[in-house]
Simulated assay, not measured.
Amino acid sequence: MDHVSYPYFTGNPEKKRTDLGVGLPVSRRGALTAPEKYRVRPELVDAVNVALTLGQPLLVTGEPGTGKTQLAYYLAYELNLGAPLKFETKSTTVARDLFYQYDTVGRFQAAQMGGATQGAALGQRRGAVDYIEYQALGKAILFANAPGHYQAATPGDFQHPGQRRSLVLIDEIDKAPRDVPNDILNEIEGMYFKVPELGNLELQAEPAYAPVVVITSNSEKSLPAPFLRRCTYFHMPAPSEQELREIVSLRLEAFDSTSPLLTDALKVMEQIQLPRNGFERKPGTSELLNWLLVLMDRGYRVDDHLRRKTDWIDPCVTALFKLQNDQSKARKLLPQLSFDG
Rank of each mutant, 00 (worst) to 15 (best):
Y192T: 14
L79K: 13
T10R: 06
N12P: 09
T18N: 09
I215C: 08
T232P: 13
S249E: 13
P35G: 12
K139Y: 05
E78P: 12
K139E: 02
V4N: 03
P207Y: 15
Y77F: 12
L98G: 06
G115C: 11
F193T: 05
L252E: 14
P84M: 06
P161F: 00
V4A: 09
L169M: 10
E88N: 11
T66C: 02
P25N: 12
L306F: 03
Q273T: 06
P181M: 01
D19E: 04
R251V: 08
Y102V: 04
L293S: 03
C316E: 07
V248T: 07
F108L: 14
A83R: 08
P260H: 09
G65R: 00
T92K: 08
F108D: 09
T232C: 14
G299P: 00
R298I: 15
H160E: 09
L203P: 03
T117R: 15
L32S: 06
F279Y: 01
G115L: 14
T216E: 07
E88Y: 01
A47L: 10
E88G: 04
R229Y: 04
C316Q: 02
D303P: 04
L250F: 00
L122C: 14
E243S: 01
L201Q: 13
D174C: 08
G148V: 06
V168T: 08
R308H: 12
T310R: 13
D303W: 07
L52F: 07
L44M: 13
I215H: 12
Y100Q: 02
L58F: 13
V26E: 12
T53F: 08
D97C: 13
S240H: 07
A110W: 02
D183C: 11
A110N: 07
P13V: 14
R107W: 09
T258S: 13
L198Q: 01
I170C: 06
T61Q: 08
Q273A: 15
Y77I: 11
